[in-house]
Amino acid sequence: MILQKSIPHNPLETVKLPGIKPLDLKDWLVPDDAFAGQMSCRDALLTEQRAQVLQMDPGALAPAQELLQMVLDHRYPGQGDQVHRPDGVTVDIDWQDPLATLGLISQEDFCILERREGSDEHVLTGAVLCFPASWTLSEKFMRPLIAIHDTVDSYDGGMASRVQRLFDGVQVGRPLWRFNALWYQSSDLHAPRSVQDRRDTSHGKDAPFMRSEKQSILRLPVSRAVVFSIHTFMVHKDDVMAQWGETDAVV
């Protein structure tokens, strides 16, 4: 069981969707007390289940390499062809396999979305997604935003237009972020669900674990692709309540 003891944002705060806020770039990628445990899990998933957690269109190689350079500059400045993670593991930098490298050096998952010529929406052209929360990467790969969210009840036509405007408007050097939060019966970080599977209705305030994702949105300056990064927090209910108290959660 891999758990954090705290969450840096209040996951119980009532926020009007989509709940977007400006993000200081220094707060984009921040390791926490579950770093070693989460990275060990990521290592295993990328070794044993790579096809389930990594997908990339060949045309997304350049944006993925650009993102890798940005993450290296942000988290591992000056470390060269290898990086030394805070948990003591050394990782070789593979520029021909940038998403896998990202999955091995960062606690966050990363999705690359591009609005290619002739498309009205951004499309998911690459992702390393070790910790999916009730969705499956293979079912969303190379699909546009509205199709990615087709199982989200609140994602109607109006919300789709707002999110597409958000992705069109995010500016280089001015990242954004939001969070979601949901009580879970299981603490599993790797929790995919196919669109064909019945939705699990056992979650609720009586469940013992809070899963909250810090979701960041930024634009790459050269390729102009949009990066959607996800930092997953899994915290026991007792620790959530000790930190933030009794409030209504937002999903």
Rank of each mutant, 00 (worst) to 15 (best):
T136E: 12
L129R: 03
D156C: 10
L166D: 00
R143Y: 06
S216H: 00
P175W: 05
D156H: 01
T136W: 05
W183K: 04
G103I: 13
S194G: 04
L113E: 02
V152T: 09
P132T: 11
P132D: 10
G173A: 09
T101F: 12
L182E: 02
G126I: 09
G103L: 09
Y155I: 13
S134P: 00
T125L: 08
I105M: 13
H149K: 09
R115P: 01
S187Y: 08
K214P: 05
T201M: 14
S216C: 15
Y184T: 04
D200W: 01
S119A: 15
R174S: 11
R174M: 08
D150A: 04
S194K: 01
Q164E: 15
L124T: 08
I146V: 10
Q171D: 13
D150P: 01
G173Y: 03
S186Y: 01
R219S: 04
S154N: 10
S161C: 02
A147V: 14
I217V: 15
S194T: 05
P132V: 14
H149E: 03
E213D: 14
E108A: 13
L99S: 10
P144R: 14
S194Y: 03
W177Y: 15
L166E: 01
A160M: 09
L166P: 01
S212F: 07
S154D: 12
Q196M: 12
S202C: 04
Y184F: 15
G158L: 05
G103T: 09
P175G: 11
D200I: 12
W177N: 06
S212A: 15
H149G: 00
G173H: 08
D97V: 01
S194Q: 05
A133N: 14
V123F: 10
F141S: 11
V195L: 03
V128G: 01
Q107C: 03
I105G: 07
D206M: 13
I217K: 02
A133C: 08
A127D: 02
Q185S: 03
D120Y: 12
L176T: 07
D206Q: 14
T151K: 11
H122G: 01
E139F: 04
S212N: 07
T101S: 12
E117F: 04
T151W: 00
Q215K: 05
E117K: 15
Q196K: 13
H149Q: 08
H203M: 06
I146Y: 10
R162Q: 15
H203S: 11
M159V: 10
L182P: 00
V128Q: 14
G169V: 06
D153N: 04
A147L: 14
P132G: 08
S134E: 15
S161H: 08
M142S: 11
P208H: 06
D109F: 10
G126M: 05
S154F: 13
I148L: 13
D200E: 06
V152R: 04
D153P: 04
L218P: 04
L176W: 04
G157M: 09
R116V: 03
Q196W: 03
Q215I: 12
K205P: 03
V170W: 09
Q107A: 10
S216N: 08
L99H: 06
G103H: 06
V152H: 00
G204Q: 13
L99D: 07
E108V: 08
L102F: 13
W177Q: 01
Q196P: 00
M210F: 06
P144T: 14
D197I: 00
